[in-house]
Design a protein around this nucleic acid. Structure first.
Lengths: 165, 165
DNA sequence: TATTGTTATACTCTATAACTATA
DNA sequence: TATAGTTATAGAGTATAACAATA
């Protein structure tokens, strides 16, 4: 396993000398880290509970705040309205969420977890939280605080660039 | 726009009181950040140069080190061998890479950029690097150093968890 | 006319595995 | 038997846009 890791030191140095090395790129490393972290956590809710990432996000979004519309969920979970629509459809079919028309705006449907949905959430989140804590356990208080700032600051710039096109 | 952002402060506090808030989860924020960063950079190579993420990674991998086999590329770029095979096929069809059988192991094919591939890379990477620098420009030296450690440490733990299953 | 949410479609990724040609 | 790489297939996810109901 881990083939290709045995690149010669000369080859590695040659990369550095020529000025660009994918593996030294912070954005690349960030994306790879996020893929790995996402996978490590998805193993819990996907493999053991057959939830997609979108479904898990909606479950987590609805668990504390009781009721949200699809539009609110979309903003809160960074999923688009179709992803929300499909994830909700699947969760509803599984009896995990229920929807009822909003009293004032009958286009909107207010979503909330059923008892079964809350039970599922209660089963999943301690396991997810344990993995989160293990991942963050690698960091000291200062690194955590730094990460907190970095996540916000870089996110802001990324959103700027995306808006710029 | 930005619908759903106007959740009441009471509702936000209620979330905190009940103990779990998706938007406060570091792994979640990390994954969302990586999605945004990835998109901000992909706008350059995807929108303007019609390259997939895998193709861009291979281009960046081959640009400095001249020659690699598909297996080496796979390890270097965290793409699996199929993703490499397809991206290589598309790059080769576009005249960006060429492959020749390895002299000693004729199963292996050594890949390298063509002149056209190097030209493409030369056109793309300054734009990508500019975006990277803008993103990181949000951070001071200390935050950069902290991020560097965080990327390595958390990555290591994520890989542990993934291996554990 | 604009908005909420659903559906349709085509397209891209991904995962598993079978396959070939070498070794 | 094992490895390098390709191809096949089906499933999941994504993007664009059309649509119905309501505002």
């Amino acid at each position: 396993m881990r083939n290709g890791k045995d690149r010669s030191e000369a080859s590695v140095l040659a990369d550095a000398a020529e000025g660009f090395d994918l593996s030294q790129s912070y954005p690349y490393r960030l994306v790879v880290l996020a893929e790995r972290v996402s996978l490590a956590i998805a193993q819990v809710y996907a493999d053991r509970f057959d939830l997609s990432r979108a479904e898990w996000r909606l479950l987590a979004a609805l668990a504390p705040s009781r009721e949200m519309t699809a539009t609110e969920l979309s903003a809160y979970s960074t999923l688009d309205k179709m992803q929300v629509s499909r994830a909700v459809a699947r969760l509803e079919a599984a009896g995990r969420v229920e929807r009822r028309a909003d009293a004032v705006d009958r286009r909107a449907k207010r979503l909330r977890l059923t008892k079964s949905g809350r039970a599922l959430y209660s089963a999943v989140w301690p396991l997810v939280l344990a993995r989160e804590r293990y991942l963050l356990g690698a960091l000291d208080a200062e690194e955590m605080a730094g990460l907190d700032r970095v996540l916000d600051k870089v996110r802001q710039r990324a959103d700027e660039l995306i808006a710029r096109g």
